[in-house]
């Protein structure tokens, strides 16, 4: 339990959050969830996760703003961030990657299984 990989899910869609939480927990990851941007940022600093899944469309602070803050803070700039969004516009993808996301995934194209595999792939690198 103590050496579990810690994954932070920042996602305002309750159903989506629950789905990923369920799968990653089943796959024995230590999952932390945040339902909006500022909560996600706070938990990033406090919990020092190994990987962050970040949604874009969120009330208050959106995903891009969270990413900017993560990348400009010494505590979090090294943490891999995977954007999980249902926006597939090219300019959104480019913006996410430019701001320092390690990957940009379209939610509807990835099953919970794929997401879990992504975590494994990322942390084995």
């Amino acid at each position: 339990m103590e050496n579990k990989i810690k994954v932070l899910l920042i996602e305002d869609e309750k159903e989506v959050l629950e789905l990923y939480n369920l799968k990653l927990t089943l796959d024995e990851y230590d999952v932390i969830t945040a339902e909006n941007g500022s909560e996600g940022l706070e938990k990033s600093f406090k919990e020092n996760p190994d990987l962050i899944f970040l949604d874009i469309k969120m009330p208050g602070m959106d995903g891009f703003e969270v990413l900017k803050k993560l990348r400009s803070d010494e505590r979090t700039k090294h943490i891999p961030v995977i954007i999980l969004s249902n926006f597939d516009e090219q300019d959104m993808i480019e913006k996410g990657l430019t701001l320092g996301a390690n990957e940009y995934l379209i939610k509807s194209q990835f099953s919970p299984e794929d997401i879990s595999t992504k975590v494994k792939d990322f942390l084995e690198k």
Partner: peptide, 11 residues
Amino acid sequence: LRTPLTVIHGY
């Protein structure tokens, strides 16, 4: 449209 689909597909 993708959001509910994500959840349906996921479960």
